[in-house]
Each structure stands twice: as structure tokens, then as C-alpha cells.
């Protein structure tokens, strides 16, 4: 596997007086949040977090409000200065960067989309989208041309001369997205971008992100408090609670094998058949089953397999590149849906 785009190791962010001493002191790091506050007056928003973001993946950080996820994503480009730990982008130490280098990072390598859009109310849509390029010193004609291109890409054609105040929430967030895309960054950072939107618009925007990712394969770090959004978009999910990552894995792993009771409680109501893949329900195939019959891909969800099994009236093969990995039958699939199937590690 290639070097991760972002690699974070032992990251701490502590707010409060003399925050530095907290990560360094093992006695303090062991304290729960409330006690830490009474002892030192400090709040640890991010505690000893480590992960890597792989190139081209959608990495979701999920947690309830106050779990430290928004602080975490701001630490990545030092919008919030971390207290301890290391952050590297493409192997380069972010915390060691000087001001100019850091600006370089923000201008070209990582662009962010915000929950409350952060648009400049006195500028038109086009000028908002071109703003990042303007900051970089790109000439007027060139940046407008580029901005117009991106505006079209996010589906805002015709609204270029409007001002943010004249747009709906969804449209405003498209402008925010276009502004981030216009600078052609290596990584897109999303901070709960759709939380402020209506459910219908939210789904539309989620699909927009899926489409963008499919088309461009850009690396994305996506912050959300919405489990369904996380499962829908994420290649991998880091689930945070009280500043720590309690579980890091694929959606299937999170739903299929919760790391602890907190996660289990969290994913209890998730429609498992839509998240789990057939690998979980698979059993080894007997010789005659392996030979013929309808087939599904190993990445197919259980619900897709149920449909195939129901249509076939019997077990269905799981085939990967012509090789039969096993079969799924109604019994195994039901077990997954009911949550009673024996857990096993997924390859």
C-alpha cells in the first residue's frame, strides 16, 4: 500500500491554560474528561488519535457533537494548532511547516467545505468560487474561466452573478464545494457539510459527492454526525467518542463487529442487509454448487443477495474474477439480517 495522504499519530488537542502539560503527563492523560477539567481547567477535545488516510479513499470521521471530530479535521491543516502528536501530508511534517509552507498547503493541497458555508456575502457566486484562486494570485480572466468551469460542474450554471444571500442552502453549499474544487486540491476536507440542509437536499448533495468521487477519485476526509451518511459515503469510518477513536474500519466492520457496547448501541438500528456484504453470509461451496448457477460479486450487499436468492429459489454463488469463493443461501442471509450469524474476520 502507498504512503497515506494524511498520517496522524498520537494527536492531542487540549484547550485551556497550560495545555501543553496534559498530553505529556501520563497521570493526566488517564483521567476522564470531567475530572481533567476540575483538576486542570483544561478540556481535551482530541485525545491520542492516530490514523492514516489512503490516497483516493473517502475517510469518514463520525461522532456525536462534542466528540472532537470538528477539532480533529481543523488540526489537519492547523486551522487549530494541535497540542501534541504528529501530522504528515505525503510524508511531510505539517506541524513543522513555517507560515509560508502552511499557506502553500492550504492553497493547493487541502481545501475545506464548511457546515455553515463560510461564503463572502458581498461577492457573487462566481467571485466566491474564484476566491481561492484570487488568494493565490491567479489573474482575473484565468480564475474566472476556471471558476465558471467548476460552477458548471456542481450544477450552478446560470446563477453565477447571484449573491450567496439569494441562494438556497443547498445551492450555497454547492458554491462552497465549488470554491474548494476550484483550487484543485489533493484532498477535500468536509466539516459536516450537509448538517444544515433539509433531508431531501442532503441526499441530493450526498449523491453529488459520490458522483464527484467516482469521476475524479479525489481523496476526501468527511466529518459527519449522521451514521447513515457515514455508511453511505465512507470507504472507512473512524468513530469518535470523547476525543478518542473507538473504532476504525469499513462500514461493514463497524456494523458487523462493533468494537464495544457504545458502537453496538450506535449501529443497532442500521439496516444490516444494506451494509453487510455477502462475504459475511457466505459458506463454503460444495462441489456441485461451485460449478453453475446465478452469481453475485463479493462486494454485493446482503440485500442484493437476498433478491438473487429469492429469484433463484436456492443458493447463489459468490464469484470474484471467475473464481467461486463460496455460496450464500437463505439461512445464512437471514442470520446476517437477524444479527445471529457467527462473526468472522473478513478478508
Amino acid at each position: 500500500m502507498s504512503t497515506p495522504v494524511f498520517s496522524v499519530d498520537g494527536l492531542w488537542k487540549v484547550f485551556g491554560p497550560k495545555a501543553d502539560r496534559v498530553p505529556a503527563d501520563p497521570e493526566l492523560t488517564a483521567l476522564p474528561a470531567a475530572e481533567l477539567r476540575t483538576r486542570t481547567g483544561c478540556t481535551a477535545a482530541v485525545r491520542d488519535v492516530s490514523f492514516g488516510v489512503r490516497k483516493g479513499e473517502v475517510f469518514v470521521v463520525m461522532g456525536l457533537s462534542g466528540s472532537g471530530k470538528s477539532t480533529l479535521v481543523r488540526c489537519l491543516t492547523r486551522l487549530i494548532e494541535p497540542t501534541a502528536g504528529t501530522i504528515a501530508i505525503d510524508g511531510e511534517d505539517v506541524r513543522a511547516m513555517d507560515k509560508a509552507r502552511l499557506r502553500e498547503l492550504r492553497r493547493h493541497r487541502a481545501a475545506m467545505v464548511f457546515q455553515h458555508f463560510g461564503l463572502l456575502p458581498h461577492r457573487t457566486v462566481l467571485d466566491n468560487v474564484a476566491y481561492g484562486l484570487e488568494i493565490q494570485g491567479v489573474g482575473r480572466a484565468e480564475r474566472r474561466e476556471k471558476a465558471a468551469e467548476v460552477v458548471a460542474k456542481v450544477g450552478l450554471t446560470g446563477l453565477e452573478q447571484r449573491r450567496p444571500g439569494q441562494l438556497s442552502g443547498g445551492q450555497q453549499q454547492r458554491v462552497g464545494l465549488a470554491r474548494a474544487l476550484a483550487v484543485d486540491p489533493e484532498v477535500l476536507l468536509f466539516d459536516e457539510p450537509f448538517s444544515a440542509l433539509d433531508p431531501l437536499i442532503r441526499r441530493e448533495m450526498q449523491e453529488e459527492v459520490v458522483r464527484l468521487h467516482r469521476d475524479e477519485g479525489r481523496t476526501m476526509v468527511f466529518i459527519t454526525h449522521d451514521l447513515n451518511e457515514a455508511l453511505k459515503l465512507g470507504d472507512r469510518i473512524a468513530l469518535m467518542r470523547d476525543g478518542r477513536i473507538v473504532q476504525l474500519g469499513t462500514p461493514e466492520e463497524i456494523v458487523g463487529s462493533p468494537a464495544d457496547d457504545y458502537v453496538r448501541e450506535f449501529v443497532r438500528d442500521v439496516p444490516r442487509e444494506q451494509v453487510m456484504t455477502v462475504r459475511t453470509a457466505m459458506r463454503p461451496a460444495s462441489a456441485e454448487e461451485a460449478g453453475a448457477g446465478p452469481a453475485v460479486a463479493p462486494a454485493a450487499t446482503v440485500s442484493e443477495a437476498i433478491e438473487a436468492v429469492a429469484r433463484n429459489g436456492g443458493p447463489v454463488r459468490v464469484v470474484d474474477a471467475g473464481r467461486c469463493l463460496g455460496v450464500v443461501d437463505s439461512e445464512g442471509l437471514l442470520g446476517v439480517v437477524a444479527g445471529t450469524a457467527p462473526r468472522k474476520e473478513v478478508a
Partner: peptide, 8 residues
């Protein structure tokens, strides 16, 4: 914050 995130 958005402006800062763009490297202004």
C-alpha cells in the same frame, strides 16, 4: 475560517 482555510 473559510478564508483562512484557503490560505489567505
Amino acid at each position: 475560517e473559510a478564508v483562512e482555510s484557503l490560505g489567505a
